[in-house]
Design a protein around this nucleic acid. Sequence first.
DNA 1: ATAAAAAACTTGTAAATACAAGTTAAAATA
DNA 2: TATTTTAACTTGTATTTACAAGTTTTTTAT
Lengths: 241, 241
Amino acid sequence: MTTLEKDKKIPQYRQLYEILRKHILEGIYKEGDLLPSENELCIIHSMTRPTVRQALSDLVNDGFIKKQKGKGSIVHQLPKGIGILSVAGTTSALSGQNLETRILVKPNVKQWADPFMFNLSEAEKNSGCIYMERLRLVNRKPLFYDITYIPNINLPRFTSRSFENKSLFDTLRGFYQIEVKGGEQKLRAIPANKEIGKYLEVPAGQPILHLERKIDTNRVGFCFYSSLYCNTEDHALFGIF
Amino acid sequence: MTTLEKDKKIPQYRQLYEILRKHILEGIYKEGDLLPSENELCIIHSMTRPTVRQALSDLVNDGFIKKQKGKGSIVHQLPKGIGILSVAGTTSALSGQNLETRILVKPNVKQWADPFMFNLSEAEKNSGCIYMERLRLVNRKPLFYDITYIPNINLPRFTSRSFENKSLFDTLRGFYQIEVKGGEQKLRAIPANKEIGKYLEVPAGQPILHLERKIDTNRVGFCFYSSLYCNTEDHALFGIF
DNA sequence: ATAAAAAACTTGTAAATACAAGTTAAAATA
DNA sequence: TATTTTAACTTGTATTTACAAGTTTTTTAT
């Protein structure tokens, strides 16, 4: 095989989800619009109602539409802030904006910090972790200071890949067939220390939002971790629930 | 009729959800345990697999279990922080802990603030809002300072009800059949001002987490709003996604 | 005894069907 | 014309069936 990629079948409901999501993001369906009814979507895309409903259910969970019995699927107003609180990497959360990524510390293998922000399995502890520091800028202003920890398990050539202009999520999916499934996060408001203040260009002591995240994937037992410092002075973090 | 309550049929999948959720919270199923398989649940509760799967799907979305193909439904580790980021009122988010609620400003009808943190419909603007301020204490320490805004639409006797030891969500459900469906929120880290500092017993300038929330309900077009100031020094906010 | 193969589980995806319940638009009635 | 009723839509809930795909246990063969 010339490539590591396996051809994985994409489920029908997922394909429909992607199509509708794209159409909403492109503005083909605008805020307040009704999507075609479930029965119409069945006919258009040659699938049955349960399949269509699964796609719509995912769109509801991700905040793109809301449903009303008797009426239809209504396109939700798109988040104006930064949608990092749901399943999304920082790159996707900031899509459409003038985004720049600066690598502060290139991916390198090291030991896990002890204690670590989440409980680690023995397998994770023994394998060590790939460590990386990145800064994300929107319109030339630094917004995120992101420290990433990835277990060093079966990820050939990972440290030599570039992340300058590519999403970590895309890299994991493209080269290793790793899909993000969900995760958990802890939030705190903390004062910026000297180092964080330097990176985010704010005075020490200024309130900063700190997210500690554990991100689950489709590979059983494989999670990765992120410690994210976010300047919310200009941009609030946005989430749906 | 002597009561406002209509007898609303609770769907089977919702009943199963509540049972399993309760069992997990009570520790009958512990972290890492496998729930009975879908087919077993079908037999136990006399329902079909799609119905069971809908209940399990909701449990996944709410972070109580994760599913693994070929294996089963695994009970998730329960959040140690405060699960306010998903569908939950502060009361439910703090359940099990030594919780006290102090009413700072009793419910009273007033005009909406202008500008308001979310866009309001004309119907909402015209009706005015019910305003309330509450302080939530955990183990005698104030954690949340909560300002609630509820549109004054068809909620008889609302301002005269007590919220001392009752959840707002429970009141809305019990007296008005209003169920919380979801919502959206904006998060910021801000410095405590004098007033917030006084309530949360922290020095002015200390980083505080500010949540602005719009909460959707099953009553079409009826939302309510909350501005929540949270001291995350001791307790991080916890969320799954 | 060890290793490979098969069987027996598990959840994931998908179809076809039926009726309930809420909303909207058309038709009938006053 | 204005109002009420009806019909035609919409999504919500639930059953039944089938097979795919991943995991674990058992059986079989070496």
